[in-house]
Design a protein around this nucleic acid. Structure first.
Lengths: 160, 160
DNA sequence: GCCTCCTTACTCGGATATAGGCTGTCCGAGTGTAATGGG
DNA sequence: CCCATTACACTCGGACAGCCTATATCCGAGTAAGGAGGC
């Protein structure tokens, strides 16, 4: 079970957009250069963030992406869901009904599968932990070890 | 991010072995028939459980697999780790060091990446929730809705 | 009748194909800019 | 000098290949059972 690499890219790009701060959109090419990522593929990931309502895109010459909301209104859960999709990692295929289960009609399969319930319980804890952290908190944690991080980013993007 | 289907198979097979109860090993072909699963591929998953120390295998005519420990000594975390491997779902590739980061030598990259830390925090919650649930508890939850479940399984496997 | 040996069938274990999804790339539609020509 | 027009360069957006892992399968090594033969 490996999470898509796009999640890492998406979180970092959102943080960068937050540090830049102003409302001028940033094109994919610039963000890709800022992390040495393949521009076209990064664009694909940013499109997913737009569809999820986390970013807004503006076409045209001075176009690009900007945050749809401030960082303290975006949770890690939203970014992960935007890239990875809404499905749970564990997907119950109801194998309990097949084979031996099919031959015991006295069992009621209306009640949810106990295995699925247990796995879902754990995933819920994961989702809660993701939803409890906003991107603003992550940005603050990053700046705790590098106080002038935002300034450096603004300088690199030519927005000092 | 989709978890391997083998996790579901592994948990259900362990529960079945627990319900059978006795020490006679159960071959893969029988377990596969009990859930209508491809026998050879199920065997591969059970091999992983053996390597993880959850099952023991015995070759030969009356061979097969049996539980290495009782169900209350096996957690969901162990089964997931046995099938999915020990790696975290989110793998930090340190993109912060590339591009703009490479040109700011004043930043200290000794401290862990804040994004990675936040994601790891959520995954830790997931792992804790998995480790807090034993297979015995899952089996008990399943029997709560179907009291004679174990008996039905034993009958199907010819061990009434 | 009992013990030993041998054949045999069955099981696990790893090596080998196949498929689906993530990764990566390319090209077209659209838009704001900037130059250019006319008034 | 000012304004309208037009060509253009740049951006997003979706459609198109490549690779890597999960899925599925097959065959060989090993083992214990069960039967046959000899004592």
């Amino acid at each position: 079970m490996r999470m898509s690499e796009g999640v890492e890219w998406a979180v970092h790009c959102c943080l960068t957009l937050g540090w830049l701060g102003d409302d001028r959109p940033v094109p994919t090419s610039r963000l890709a250069a800022g992390y040495e990522l393949p521009p076209a593929y990064l664009n694909k990931q940013l499109q997913a963030l737009v569809r999820a309502g986390l970013l807004t895109s503006t076409p045209g010459v001075r176009g690009g992406f900007r945050l749809a909301r401030p960082l303290d209104k975006i949770t890690l859960m939203e970014v992960v869901a935007a890239i990875e999709g809404p499905d749970d990692a564990f997907q119950c295929t109801e194998i309990r009904r097949r084979g031996s289960g099919a031959e015991s009609p006295e069992r009621n399969f209306r009640t949810p599968c106990a295995v699925s319930t247990a796995m879902r319980k754990a995933e819920l804890a994961w989702r809660r932990a993701l939803a409890a952290q906003t991107l603003a908190e992550v940005a603050a944690a990053a700046e705790r070890h590098a106080p002038n991080l935002g300034e450096g980013v603004r300088r690199w993007y030519g927005r000092g």
